[in-house]
Amino acid sequence: MTIDAPKLTVVTGAENDPRARLRKRIFSVLAHALLIGASILMLYPLLWLLAASFKPENEIFTSGIWPSLSWDIDSYFRGWNAMRVSFTVFFMNSFVIAFLCVVGNLIACSMAAYAFARLQFKGRNFWFAMMLMTLMLPYQVTLIPQYVLFRDLGWVNTILPLVVPKFMAVDAFFVFLMVQFFRGIPRELDEAAMMDGAGPWRIYWKIMLPLSIPVLVTAAIFTFIWTWDDFFGPLIYLNRMQDYTVMLGLRTFVDSTGESDFGGLFAMSVLSIVPIFVFFLLFQRLLIEGIATTGMKR
């Protein structure tokens, strides 16, 4: 969007004054120095984690604060199979849950958003306000009755409590994000389609969705990342180790190995954030735009 265009050039009225230009230059050097310093500080913990995961166990805490390179991948093998259930299972579980959540959110949220953005029906503004209110709602207030409900349905220790709600557009953030996007699509397009006899379903499917690929991709990536990261939901609903997600596996790793296998723990920690990092590298621009347009939390 407009974010990329650096355009602030303050006209001082003395653009050609050499002293002003020198001042500007010094300022720019100082600012870069500050930003680079801050960048290093921000990234240092992550780099340290990465470096530590490639070190032999006995060197992790003795090699000082400067990341020294070594390429011992033993920690990865050790960590992967450190527990009764291997990380293969945890990763599979996480991927399945995240994938289903993405599908659910894309379908349900885009349908709701289409209704709010385009269709006329009684009480639309009221329901839209209700939807926005749920954005502010702390999940704790629905937690216990939901747990009782899912328990009574026999869904505890299955992935259903984590996945099924997504098919009911409970993530109001994405409904809001998509409403904002749909409103930007020219109305002439659906009016023309309506003239040709297309009903709401066809307009939704043939016009809105194809034109909304960017927002759908953004919602998909955010859903993936948030579900992948989610700790609380799996913590409550998944109690058997073979059902654990990566995040639960990691937490069990901390508890079970305690202070003994840091190498393995760090290696698995690195692997657990690799999918998020890959999405970040590939779709950074979409993520940043998504945040800038709706002000999403992360």
Partner: peptide, 12 residues
């Protein structure tokens, strides 16, 4: 600067 807020909620 954005990367930490994307990763920060993670158990890792």
């Amino acid at each position: 600067f954005y990367l930490p807020s994307l990763l920060g909620a993670s158990v890792a």
